[in-house]
């Protein structure tokens, strides 16, 4: 009797274990195969259209034919505006948080909280804000400038948080050493701390670029749709993600170009993310050899 009960419960446990294994394995198969499907689909449909001409020509018949040259340029310009504004602002705020605010201090707490909240705001809301503030209130209209500034607001929390943690990993010995030599914080930052944290800062910047480049919703009503070659920052410009959206939704027969553009976008993102993690790893290694 007793041994039978033990046998039964052991049997039940074995069955449970087996089931769990199968479920986990099934989930992993589902995830990887879906991802593989997605990636292969994009490469398969996108690759045959990509060539030198696709990257350098202007779009024809609403993007069904031709290339994406003005779109690439507009994307680069929007990113440039976004980073030109957010990078200095982000670095300065990160320096204030990591070097000047006391741990547990009030200013640092409130700034940090506002950044965490900002990081959670949905991108379409950034679009609404950008439209109301930059396009209408400041009178910049649908322009590369409006789009870039909107993205700058969006990536600010990422830039600040990554830069802050990068600066915090710089050994405190150097701060004390510099202070003991009567070196001002400003020089210590310029000569020692920022160079030491540079790979982490660049990695954070890459992360921000990646986020900005993938963004669509915040740009539709700020930088606009126009797919002409932009002549100035006050021209409307179509970012590559907006281009993909427009080809998919509004252009019958635009799928092939949409896939090709998606492939270009993903290739750029992988490149940027790869560079970011390589740099982040290098910081870590340098820290180990330095100590």
């Amino acid at each position: 009797m007793h041994s039978l009960a033990v046998y039964r419960s052991a049997h039940r446990i074995a069955l449970r274990d087996r089931t769990l294994q199968l479920l986990v394995l099934a989930a992993v198969v589902v995830i990887t195969s879906t991802f593989g499907w997605l990636l292969l689909d994009i490469v398969w449909h996108g690759a045959n259209r990509i060539g030198w001409e696709f990257l350098t020509a202007a779009p024809r018949s609403a993007g069904r034919n031709g290339g994406i040259a003005p779109i690439l340029l507009a994307t680069v310009l929007i990113l440039t505006v976004a980073l030109a504004v957010s990078a200095p602002l982000g670095l300065a705020t990160a320096i204030l948080l990591s070097e000047f605010s006391r741990p547990g201090g009030r200013a640092g707490y409130w700034i940090g909280l506002s950044l965490d909240i900002l990081a959670g705001v949905p991108s379409i809301v950034f679009g609404l804000f950008g439209n109301a503030f930059f396009c209408v209130w400041l009178g910049l209209g649908f322009s590369i400038l409006s789009g870039g500034l909107t993205l700058a607001c969006m990536v600010l929390p990422i830039l600040i948080r990554t830069a802050e943690s990068g600066l915090r990993t710089v050994p405190n010995d150097w701060r004390l050493g510099a202070a003991a030599l009567g070196i001002s914080k400003a020089s210590a930052l310029v000569n020692v701390l920022i160079p030491a944290a540079a790979p982490a800062l660049v990695a954070g910047l890459m992360l921000g670029i990646g986020r900005a480049m993938a963004e669509t919703a915040a740009l539709i009503f700020t930088s606009g749709y126009v797919d002409r070659m932009p002549a100035s920052l006050l021209d409307s410009g179509r970012a590559i993600s907006v281009h993909i959206y427009d080809l998919t939704m509004n252009v019958a027969g635009g799928d092939r170009s949409a896939y090709a553009s998606a492939l270009v976008l993903i290739a750029l993102l992988i490149l940027i993310n790869g560079a970011a993690s390589w740099l982040a790893e290098r910081t870590l290694k340098r820290r180990i050899t330095a100590s």
């Binding site: 200095p88 602002l89 300065a92 705020t93 950044l115 900002l118 804000f129 109301a132």
Partner: peptide, 18 residues
Amino acid sequence: LAFAAGLASAVLILIVLF
């Protein structure tokens, strides 16, 4: 730095206000 941080924190306030 305080000016920059103020600007960065103002973004959230501006968004809510607008």
